[in-house]
């Protein structure tokens, strides 16, 4: 049994009449990268604010490293590293002034703890004198991460760290997280990008204040119960509308420039060749169809469509 870092039992939260979180149960193990994956409005930020002692849970209990987020908030605020959704930096302060300030409020010295952020901060150090407001999204993200790490937190909480950042910086960022992980820090991260889920050790798929499923990305995709076909063609929207009219097709969704369709688990379900034939018969031009392995996004959409998830 791995050691547990965070546990949530029946965590709920409402604002007035709107329910942000229904009743979440989850565990995050020590030293893992745990991802909360879900679209905007799924309740990720509310959950993270509860984890970081910023909000009181409306119901249920959350313990981080054995400390209760309500009672022991003072202790938790020492050992948490938190990066809010908007990079909370002081835009009128320079890169190094920001880092020095955040080290200062945690009572640590930048020079003593420099080794903790060397890997990340080193990349933006050439711009140490530049104002944080003048940095690119990727650089802001690195600075914010450095500021969250400078006091050697035990648990790192990152709320949508890759939103609004270019693709290259996103990949770099995940590489940084992987390197951080080797230091033994527990990382909780939220993201609306399904492709990032595969980078996590374990994920929870969230939708409308619910956790739909939890597990390793591999176990979630392996559990996908239907066949998936990937169709690439010049007129993706046409493919979409045509396949949706076919019988025994559970879903047809646009994935980038391709269409993913999943079929029902019956003998009458069309095969790849049959789908292709149908599309050609309907006057669609050249297209490639292949059987595909379900990704997290396929699973997510599938789970979303299960009626019991919309309580």
């Amino acid at each position: 049994m791995p050691e547990v870092s965070i546990t949530g039992e029946g965590v709920g939260k409402s604002y007035g009449t709107t329910t942000a979180l229904k009743s979440l149960d989850f565990t995050v193990n020590k030293g893992e990268v745990f991802g909360f994956i879900g679209p905007d409005g799924a309740g990720k930020t509310t959950l993270f604010r509860i984890l970081t002692t910023l909000l009181l849970p409306g119901s249920g209990k959350v313990r981080v490293e054995g400390y209760d987020v309500v009672k022991d908030y003072r202790i938790l605020r020492r050992i948490l590293g938190y990066m809010p959704g908007r990079f909370s930096l002081y835009h009128d302060l320079s890169v190094e002034e920001n880092l020095r300030f955040f080290a200062g409020i945690f009572g640590v010295d930048v020079r003593e703890n420099y080794h903790l952020v060397k890997d990340i901060y080193g990349q933006i150090e050439p711009f140490a004198k530049r104002k944080a407001g003048k940095l690119s999204g990727g650089m802001k993200q690195k600075l914010a991460l450095s500021c969250a790490l400078i006091h050697e937190p035990v648990v790192l909480v990152l709320d949508e760290p890759t939103t609004g950042v270019d693709a290259v910086s996103r990949r770099e960022f995940w590489e940084m997280l992987m390197r951080l992980k080797t230091g033994g820090i527990t990382i909780v991260v939220s993201t609306p990008y399904m492709d990032e889920a595969m980078r996590c050790d374990r994920v929870a798929l969230m939708q409308q204040g619910n956790i739909m499923t939890t597990g390793t990305p591999q176990s979630i995709t392996a559990a996908f119960p239907h066949k998936i076909y990937r169709i690439k063609g010049s007129a993706a929207l046409n493919i979409l509308s045509l396949t949706r009219k076919m019988k025994h097709i559970r879903s047809a969704e646009l994935f980038g420039d391709a269409v993913h369709i999943s079929t029902e688990n019956t003998d009458q379900a069309p095969t790849a060749a049959e789908i292709s034939q149908y599309l050609s018969a309907q006057g669609l031009g050249r297209h490639i169809i292949s059987e595909a392995v379900a990704g997290i996004e396929d699973c997510f959409i599938d789970l979303m469509k299960q009626p019991d998830r919309h309580v």
């Binding site: 910023l54 003072r74 605020r77 809010p84 909370s88 930096l89 835009h91 955040f102 945690f106």
Partner: peptide, 13 residues
């Protein structure tokens, strides 16, 4: 407004 208060709060200050 800038959200920096969030970070200040999640600190021992």
């Amino acid at each position: 407004e800038a959200g920096t208060m969030e970070v200040l709060l999640v600190s021992p200050l």
